[in-house]
Every structure is written in structure tokens, then in C-alpha cells.
Amino acid sequence: MSALLQVRGLSRHYGQRIGCEDVSFDLHPGELLCVVGESGSGKSTLLSTVAAQLAPSAGTVRYRQRDGEWLELGTLSEADRRRLAREEWGFVTQNPRDGLRLNVSAGANVAERLMALGMRNYSQLRGIARSWLERVEIDAARIDDAPTSFSGGMQQRLQIARTLVTQPRLVFMDEPTAGLDVSVQARILDLLRGLVNELGLAAVMVTHDLAVARLLAARTIVMQGGRVVETGLTDQILDDPQHPYTQLLVSSVLTT
């Protein structure tokens, strides 16, 4: 099967400092790839650069569209970049408050991307919003409530609903479960796993939590100091780490 996303030699520098350096990987349709590493290892920089939110300092990112045509993201116009982000991609931020529109109701948050795609039928929008709230286990009766009245976990689930409502082909997630308590994390991960399987999405997820990688991802990339130090099947990396840094990461996971 042909890849969905091809990243080759991607670097992003902040002046003299390195954000990420010489990263290459392929992502296939329906695959969930985890990027793990300590704080400051360049995970989020990599994600933003791949998602064309930051301009790369070197290297290329290629994306295969619905019609099978390859796009070179570095040469994309602002209009095309936004069209991709609107129609084919989704981005889930670590802090749901960054990804949600807080001054409008939950229903409007879910329906916004549909309206951006030109859907102009109120009752239809409403029906889809309600069904998505139920899918992410939010009581549909709260459709007109402000997201600010939701708990942190609910806000994160709302952001997931808002992102997935247009059935994107590729989703970028930046630590979607960080900052939530363990039981809420588990439910969101469970939910994500279900949705990813059901919709057949491809996803790149950044996390510092190896347990998340083990639960969700078939393949994992380990980063340190902006560079990829190890890449491979998640089970292989976690059970038989080769690089000293990965060994350190794996051994520092608390086990009970």
C-alpha cells in the first residue's frame, strides 16, 4: 500500500537552536504513529512542521491527497494549506482551550468545520453535532452549553469531536491526554482507539507517555535533542530497546 505522508530529512531550527533535525518517516493510511521523547526533545516542533504550521528549515513533507495526487507541502500556497487543514486534516492540541472556540456553545464548536465546508442546513448540523457528542460520551442535552462549563476531560473529548466530525484522513495530536487525570486519560485513549479503528484514520500523536504509545500505536519514533534515536514497532521498542536513551526511558516507567 502506498504511503499517505512522506517526511524526508526534515529539520526546523530556531536561529542557532535545533528544534528538530533530519527526521524521516512514512505514514500509511489507517496507521497511528507515536512520537515519544522527553520534554524539549523536539516532538511538538516536528508535529507542527509536518502539519505545515511551521516552515521547515530543510527537508520535505509530501502528502497524498484523496484523489491520489502527491502534494509538496513546502511549496503550498496559504489557500491550499488552509484547504487541506479544513478538508483533509485535523489537529488536536494539548490544551483543549487552544483548539476550541470558547465563546460559543459546544454544538457550534462541533458544527464549525462542517459550516466551513459549506453545510448550510441548521437541523442537519444540529443532528450531526448531537450524534458526535454522544460518540465522545458527552450528554447530548449539553449541546447548547458553553465549553467553559465543561470539565477538562469533557473539553478534550469535545475537541476530538470537533476535529473528527469532518472525517479527516489525517489527524495530528499533540499530547491529547497530558494534564488529565489517569482515569480520564484511560477513557479518552479508549475512545481514540475506537474512533481511529472505526474511521480508519491515519494519525501522528506526540506523547511523553510510553503507556499511551503501547496502547495505541503500531509504530513509534523516539526523539532526543531534536533527533530520532530509534524507530520501529512499538512492542519491539518498548520490550527490547536498543538505544541507551530509549533504555533509560523504558526503565524509568513506574511499574506497580
Partner: peptide, 17 residues
């Protein structure tokens, strides 16, 4: 970019409320 989906968010909110 004539990207005006946002304006309908406001009208949606009106009807919802």
C-alpha cells in the same frame, strides 16, 4: 480566501439560543 464559515457559527448560536 473567502473563508466565511465562521460567520455561520454566529447565526448557528443565535438559533441555538
Amino acid at each position: 480566501l473567502a473563508d466565511y464559515g465562521l460567520m455561520h457559527v454566529k447565526l448557528y448560536e443565535d438559533i441555538a439560543q
